[in-house]
Amino acid sequence: MLNTLTPPTRYWQPGELIVIGIFSAMIKLSSLLIALTGGGMNPLSLVLKNLVATSLLVVLVFKVRKFGVLTLFVTVSTLISMLLDGGNIIRLPGALIAGGLCDLVIHFSGGYQKPGALIAGVAVFDLLSRFIALGLSWLTMREQPAMVMVASVIVALGYLGCLMGLFSGLHLSRELTHAGVLRHE
């Protein structure tokens, strides 16, 4: 029976799918680890945790240079958050839109072979995800807009970490390529 199987034409190779899954695990655990070490509301750990998460995301897009990588990453990440640490399911539609839009940003700003386009895509992705998170905060706390303002400050601080993460991610990707560990799929 098995000898008669014909492989279907696949857009995603198993190796690429596994990289996306493993990096989702890494990003989730590294954020958790830094929050536990430095305290969740501590501004420094807030910046550092976003710095690490964005750096890892940059390495991921350097490894899997294919249209849809951010959309798939965000789908997997939201599913896992929902199952493991109680992430809210209503984040999914917004996250999917953010991932899809940012894949389009990369596609139209030079494609997946251009490091600049990849960095731009991740930067917009981080920004959009935070806007969507703020939108959800507004839905939850709309009766008290001052709370949404406080959330905005925290999110802005986090985005500062993301911006730093873009540079450290680029630096890390170059180092890993030089070491022969990072070869894109």
Binding site: L17, G21, S24, V76, L79, L83
Partner: peptide
């Protein structure tokens, strides 16, 4: 596949 890889 990626979701199970994350959990694994």
């Amino acid at each position: 596949l990626p979701t199970s890889a994350t959990i694994r």
